[in-house]
């Protein structure tokens, strides 16, 4: 890494480890993800949703390892997972469909994790040994609600918040959301995209 501090290089090392692990586990997975991403970037929402679902446990494991390597409790890893998913989504146009998918994915994961660790830099942290059992546990989504995203969602402009909430939580389609909010489908699409971009920005601003 160019101009990286020693601490950052250590973090990089951890991710190199994860990346290598992912590589060993399979070319098939890489091919599958690349195909789903290609379809997703062409507007295939179902393929894209499948991709994100497959990525999430991997991101969760990476977030836990990243947080614990940085000396933080792995308990709030889900915030990092959500922030990373938003980054993958909002930067999906930067993946060159001719290139392998994994290096792109891991560069984003590494960037976001380092970003989170840097933002939390001044916070007191709990030694990682206390959370060894958390690290060893399975990577299912924690049942508790994740705080950050809901707090950020509340601070969005009304329209964007309503659209994001109806689509995310109620599972509404663009058309259903348009009908419920008396908006045009185009306006719902724009509000959804802006709302998601604003959410990512709120994550970025928080704890700065």
């Amino acid at each position: 890494m160019i101009g990286a501090s020693r601490a950052e290089r250590n973090k990089t090392y951890i991710f190199t480890e994860i990346t290598t692990g992912a590589h060993v586990r399979g070319n098939d997975r890489e091919q599958g993800w690349a195909a789903l991403m290609r379809a997703g970037n062409a507007g295939d929402a179902a393929a894209y949703q499948q991709l994100l679902r497959e990525l999430t446990p991997v991101l969760r494991a990476a977030a836990r390892r990243g947080l614990s390597a940085g000396g933080y409790a792995a308990m709030d890893a889900e915030d990092v997972v959500q922030e990373t998913l938003l980054a993958i989504h909002l930067k999906r146009q930067t993946w060159d469909s001719q290139s392998p998918f994994s290096p792109w994915l891991w560069a984003i994961v590494r960037h976001k994790t380092i970003d989170v660790l840097r933002r939390r830099g001044r916070r007191l942290h709990v030694p990682i040994e206390d959370f060894a059992d958390v690290l060893g546990s399975d990577e299912a989504e924690p049942s508790m609600l994740v705080e950050d995203i809901d707090r950020h969602l509340k601070s969005l402009p009304d329209r964007q918040r309503d659209v994001v909430r109806i689509i995310a939580v109620d599972g509404a389609s663009i058309g259903e959301a348009a009908e419920r909010l008396s908006m045009s489908a185009g306006a719902v699409r724009v509000a959804l995209h802006r709302g998601l971009a604003a959410l990512a920005a709120k994550f970025k601003m928080s704890e700065a």
Binding site: N41, R53, Q82, L85, L86, T94, V169, R189
Partner: peptide, 22 residues
């Protein structure tokens, strides 16, 4: 909002394909 909810919203947004970076 759970992660699965967020994925739902991202997938719906993906229905509008982004312009490639180039």
């Amino acid at each position: 909002m759970k992660t699965e909810n967020l994925i739902q919203a991202l997938a719906v947004d993906a229905g509008t394909p982004p312009a490639p970076l180039g």
